[in-house]
Design a protein around this nucleic acid. Sequence first.
RNA 1: GCGGACGUGGUCUAGUGGUUAUGACUGUAGAUUCCCAAUCUGCAAACCCGGAUUCAACUUCCGGCGUCCGCACCA
Length: 574
Amino acid sequence: MTSDSERVNSLMSMLKRRGIIFPAFSIHGGIAGLFDYGPVGGRLLRKVQQQWREHWLSKGNIVEIDSPTITPETVLQASGHVSAFNDHASECNSCSAIFRSDHLVEEYQQNPDSLSGTQLDTILAENGISCPSCNKSDWAESRPMNLMFGTKIGATRGGRQAYMRPETAQGMFLTFPMIQRHFRNRLPYGAIQIGKGYRNEISPRQGMIRQREFNMAELEYFIDPNADASHDFSKWNEIDFQLIPDPIDGEQKPINIDIGTALTKNIVRHPTVAMFMAETFDFLIKIGADPSRIRFRQHESDEMAHYASDCWDLEMHGSYGWIECVGIAHRGCYDLGAHEEATGTKELRAWRDFDEPIEVDKEVVSAIGSVVGPAFRQQAGQVSQALSELETIPTAFPFDLDLNDGNVVSIDDSMVEVVRIQETIRGEWYLPHVVEPAFGLDRIIWHLLDHGYEMTSKEGEEYLILHLSESVAPYEVVVLPLFEKDGMGKIAKELQCKLLAINGIGVYYDGTRSIGRRYARADEIGVPWAITVDYESMADGTVTVRRRDDQSQIRISTDDLIHHLQSGSLASVF
RNA sequence: GCGGACGUGGUCUAGUGGUUAUGACUGUAGAUUCCCAAUCUGCAAACCCGGAUUCAACUUCCGGCGUCCGCACCA
């Protein structure tokens, strides 16, 4: 039995040795939290991205966009990231422990997030808050710790403050008007984006799990909160998901339950969230994750971002324990609302028709601009506003009108007229709600590697096999000449070219060293199929096909081989 | 960021104030009709970076960077 840390070390060595993943900039000393995907790993990443993309685009009402990673500060102020990612830290002068300042003062202060550094220091001092670690009360000046990478837009002095995006999601919110036009204003619809996100972690640990620059894939699915959101869950009736619900009272206990029932019992609180949990599960199975090592954990109320009404983490189990790999959050109308408020735009709303049009026939008081204007000058706007908000038509003049700013003005009958309004209101503009599944691709890839990595032995020697699903394996096929002579090498290379012509198939050629060694190399990077050209091939055009997972072999004609690779049915010949 | 351990070919490692710096695996050129890391003969490939001490530093000291563990931070 190998321990988790031995397993991690062995896997990491293999990943470096075989050009899958390695620490970036290593010849310059390396930078923690940054990684390269190598010649083999790059293909793996692309294939996972492509599977993810196709999984969602095949739903029919989801489109893909691509946004800049450099993001102006105002955007991230609106989204809340500037304050959320600008936490202050206080260091204890006595024992050097560091804590988040807002956590320290939260008993004494309502909204510690919004405080400045000096305000936090004052509260710490005035209340004599003591260090949780050593109990002394001797704090150094709090320091901001911004988890976003800052930059400036503009090559010369000045320039506009900007950050590398901490998530791709803002791109979907900001392009919402374009997405809405594309779908002819009919919700629900969604947009996906695959790209890099950046977080300037204080201390990245655990290899690929916490990086400073990482591959994200996010989906924003826009829905009408008033519309029926029910989904058909019958497809998942037979699958029990492992759920760890929010502990209303005390302990969090895992339960196994199918997703439809979980929704009926209100464990999962929204049908669209449930639907995305199930779809996310399907995606991970499709790319080869071990279903028994996937679970969903619901955020506790105090852990949940303030705008989210239900939030589930999908966790995958591996050598680092249970790790969050996907977050599925119901974000309400928080994001669109925040950008609307910051910019005043009206473009972030969707239209919904009422079931029954509302007939309006009423009398209202309306200011006569040519009189009110000269009479009240700069107050005129407020006067008009207050008049239009009157609930009853005044009968006697002059009367006193309360303005919103507290002032009172006198209105006489020359200033107003009573207008009869007759109109039909057919619907309204509203802020769509959004459900967001957010995937950390590097974490998922790590777990595919971890789940698929088999350390076994062959004739007393260690033998490594990477059981990757064919849907993500970096290379589908390797072509091997039994020997590189008597024309076998030439035939094998010709076969490689033929196979490469098949859409979506990656094929490499390996002609060095013994055949067993070449099988071993292919097993180690997870190539599902090894094709060997031997003497018989030269005589009758057949080749042997070896299956990675059980090392069994069959012989078929190259025409059959090509046919099966085209239709993805090679497994059926075994 | 704090404390501890560590840093030698692609990978894993041995070791020393003066060495031609171990060994294994991998890779590679060739031999062997060779289907599961066989064997044989060659070849290539390393002391994290900077400073100090010293006639001489891969080795000692200091600083940096990185890795791992614990705390904290983060998800």
